[in-house]
Design a binder for these strands. Structure first.
Length: 361
DNA sequence: TATAAGTCAATAGT
DNA sequence: ACTATTGACTTATA
């Protein structure tokens, strides 16, 4: 009952859950949930918050040299209130979207952006809440992208084309029709017609495996097309490379730039395939979830399908300003407790040692 | 050990 | 403010 878990033990957070993870400043791999053991009906309903380690090149330097980071502790006083967002993230099925590619398969799971399945939380899901957040979660200087969030997500939801529940075994190829037709400004536009039809088949970004396999691990990704589409998407939504690289790919801006401009053919890729898989997966996601992934600033935690972000970390607003801004989606700490109780989580391994600190065994 | 692949991070360029 | 370039570094592999 006194397991003192800090972020130092993030590697051992397996099975643990971060309700309020004070994640490192910029390394998303330490904040993104890795494995969603959302087995319904059991305590594992909690969404484990696990690190998304960098791909194969996890080296000692990563942990020791440059990024002495950041083994921040879950010390923060969670005193404020939480911002509540729906977590559209995934269920176990997405785990096999990643192949055991070297040791990457573990990290790959972290990118599971798949829609959450019915875990009984649907009724709580308030679209309004989610939307509010998209529009208002601003960190420093990513306003453009996040502003998009509000509007596009709203319109998208209005159109009802979010939630393409392609969850387990769903056809991964039915991707983003509203994006497929889009233009690629400033691009040679190699093949006429939609980006999809680069191959004789209708498998857009995949070469081979015409869709039966949605696990995303065996396909040959058309890296060039992926690169083009990612480039277009980033442009379209004014998403800086740095943001995308960091939060979705766990790579540096320069790396992404290089990959985007000089994508190597799939056959020539080795561990670098993982990066393209992440890009590809991101493209598969509904906009709703794409932006969710981008928005992850590392200051929020995911818990049973909801994202909890410390309000006071969102920006430098006064209390009043914040309250005005987040009238509905604020979850007080006590409400959080209530939620936890509602979901029977108290009987789980979730422990509170003192206010503002949650620990798990 | 040599080489290739992948990436980071500094920095130059726009 | 963003993006592109590139040398250095790590890791994997022949």
């Amino acid at each position: 009952m006194n397991t003192d878990m800090t972020m130092d033990g993030i590697g051992s957070l397996h099975g643990g859950v971060a309700v309020s993870s004070v994640a490192p400043d910029y390394r998303p791999e330490l904040s993104l949930p890795l494995h969603h053991a959302m087995s319904v009906g059991t305590y594992t309903t909690l969404t484990p918050l696990q690190p998304l380690p960098p791909i194969s090149t996890v080296s000692d330097k990563f942990h020791h040299h440059h990024h002495h980071h950041h083994h921040q502790r879950l010390s923060g006083n969670v005193s404020g209130s939480f911002t509540l967002m729906r977590d559209e993230r995934g269920l176990p099925g997405m785990n096999n979207l990643y192949s055991p590619y070297h040791k990457d398969h573990m990290s790959g799971m972290g990118q599971s952006l798949s829609p959450v399945l019915g875990n009984g939380l649907g009724s709580i899901h308030n679209t309004q809440q989610g939307l509010h957040n998209y529009g208002t979660t601003t960190h420093g200087g990513h306003d453009k992208m996040l502003n998009f969030d509000a509007h596009h997500t709203a319109s998208m939801l209005a159109r009802g084309d979010h939630h393409q529940h392609r969850g387990l075994g769903g056809p991964a190829a039915g991707m983003m029709p509203h994006l497929n037709g889009m233009h690629h400004p400033g691009h040679p536009s190699p093949s006429h017609g939609p980006v999809l039809a680069s191959t004789r088949e209708r498998t857009p970004l995949l070469l081979g495996d015409a869709g039966g396999n949605s696990s995303g691990q065996l396909e040959e990704i058309n890296t060039k097309e992926v690169a083009q589409r990612i480039t277009a998407e980033l442009k379209r939504y004014s998403i800086p490379q740095a943001i995308f690289a960091q939060r979705v790919l766990c790579r540096s801006q320069g790396t992404l730039s290089d990959l985007l401009r000089n994508p190597k053919p799939w056959s020539k890729l080795k561990s670098g395939r993982e990066t393209f898989r992440r890009m590809w997966k991101w493209l598969q996601e509904p906009e709703f979830q794409r932006m969710s992934a981008l928005r992850l600033a590392g200051k929020s935690g995911w818990c049973f399908g909801f994202c909890f972000t410390r309000r006071d970390e969102k920006r430098n607003l006064t209390q009043q300003q914040q309250q005005k801004e987040f009238p509905h989606n604020v979850l007080t700490f006590h409400l959080l407790l209530l939620l936890l109780a509602l979901f029977g989580l108290f009987s789980s391994r979730l422990l509170f040692t003192h206010f503002g600190r949650m620990k798990f065994i």
